[in-house]
Amino acid sequence: MWNEPSKARLEKMPRLYETENISLKEKLVHLHFFIAGCDWYVCEFDGHDLFWGYAILNGDYEMAEWGYISFSELRELSVCGIEVDCELEEYFPVKKAQSIDKICESNGWK
């Protein structure tokens, strides 16, 4: 994995279910993983291996969904030898889901 998030960055994230009373538009997205037309936007972490967030696979906005994402599977994923990348904190600061164009487009929010 390129630019794997640091332990300190992961520790700043809310734990699973801590934000369940916050609307999807208002959820804070802490991490953005991407590879070959696929994007994972992460809002919560269990502290071990399980993220909760939004996945858009192969640019398929119609089938994109909120759900659970395995950190270990993201680490192992590669396409033609290219590994998943995690956008650096200085380029992807924590932001609300409603401010991310791809999430808005696939949810029909804009």
Rank of each mutant, 00 (worst) to 15 (best):
M1T: 09
M1R: 10
W2P: 11
W2Y: 13
E4N: 12
P5Q: 04
S6V: 02
K7P: 08
A8F: 10
R9C: 09
L10G: 02
L10K: 06
K12E: 07
M13L: 00
M13W: 04
P14Q: 01
R15C: 06
L16H: 05
E18G: 11
E18A: 09
N21D: 13
S23N: 04
S23V: 02
S23P: 05
K25E: 01
K25R: 02
E26N: 07
K27P: 08
H30N: 10
H30W: 09
L31I: 01
H32T: 07
F33M: 00
F34S: 13
A36Y: 10
A36N: 11
C38Y: 05
W40L: 00
F45W: 06
F45H: 04
F45Y: 13
F45L: 04
F51L: 01
G53W: 09
Y54W: 04
L57E: 15
N58S: 14
N58R: 15
D60I: 10
Y61I: 14
E62G: 09
E62I: 09
M63A: 15
A64I: 01
S70R: 09
S70C: 04
F71Q: 11
S72A: 11
E73T: 13
S78F: 08
V79I: 10
I82M: 15
V84T: 05
D85N: 05
D85G: 08
E87M: 12
L88C: 15
E90W: 14
F92I: 05
P93M: 00
P93C: 01
K95N: 14
K95G: 11
K96P: 06
A97I: 05
A97D: 00
Q98G: 10
I100K: 03
K102R: 13
K102A: 15
K102Y: 14
I103M: 05
C104N: 07
E105Y: 09
S106I: 06
N107M: 07
G108M: 03
G108E: 07
G108D: 09
K110G: 15
